[in-house]
Design a protein around this nucleic acid. Structure first.
Lengths: 145, 145
DNA sequence: CTCTTTGCAAACGATTTGCAAAAAT
DNA sequence: ATTTTTGCAAATCGTTTGCAAAGAG
């Protein structure tokens, strides 16, 4: 929590009551929470719903919070301690592993998580997966954007 | 189109002008379209936006149309000709391939598609993937629901 | 003291619903 | 003739914005 506030200050954001309440709600349990849940946990009286929207968006921008989007249109937010990329593309020629777009990767991770959840719901145990993405990288230094 | 109308009738749905226009819009190009796009292609005057919402939902229920949901909260619809399952779970013991929940599978397919799109956008070519899901199936005939 | 942040009310866009008229069987 | 389907208007949902007051630095 201390370091979270430090990260706020470092980004030029002010440390306020509502923000501490929101961070507290996110840090309390490790699991991702919805805006509504954060609002409830932060204490509905202590912080307006609109403020939760605004703060979470601000936190996401500075990387304090990660947004997990789901295919049903919902999204959950979790405190971002900083994690390594989980998926890579392997070059068809050199077999070198290259990083992929973080947004696309987290989307993929979410989809895989949901597939595995559906399997567990059917009674499967020891569920896991292997994903290999491969492709031919663009000829040296021509990657757009 | 004929068979599509037959599938409508077979499901107890009536074949109407707006429905034909919507099916036409979906069949014209193979690619998935948004509600707005379908509305536009069907001819805004020929069919109300609300009707597109309602018909597409009805078509989805009878399996005439498949909904592809995306993580940005949008979703596209495409005509469902009936396609084979693309992903399976492999049993850790027997190596037998078992089908997975179609909804979860299409979600996974969409996520993988977007990852690959992000790679193509970066200049990658010959993009592809391999996904292997594995798990231990529930002890004979105990799969819930 | 200055600039950011908050709360409230109101705007917003996408989707859904109520209902009477129109169309399909 | 009966039941479904349609169009329109209005309701609804989650989210965003305008603005003056409150709070942080």
């Amino acid at each position: 929590m201390e370091s979270a506030c430090a990260r706020l200050r470092a980004s030029g954001l002010r440390v306020t009551g509502p923000r501490i309440a929101i961070l507290g709600a996110l840090l309390a349990r490790g699991e991702p929470a919805s805006i509504e849940q954060i609002h409830a946990r932060a204490g509905s009286g202590r912080c307006d719903l609109v403020t939760v929207y605004r703060c979470v968006a601000a936190f996401e921008q500075i990387g304090l919070v990660r947004r997990c989007r789901f295919l049903d249109g919902t999204c959950l937010y979790e405190f971002d301690g900083g994690r390594a990329a989980q998926y890579r593309v392997v070059c068809r020629r050199t077999r070198q592993a290259l990083p992929i777009d973080p947004a696309a990767a987290s989307e993929l991770a979410a989809a895989l998580g949901r597939v595995e959840d559906s399997l567990r719901a059917k009674g499967f145990s020891e569920v896991g997966h292997v994903v290999e993405l491969y492709g031919t990288p663009p000829p040296e230094g021509q990657a757009p954007t």
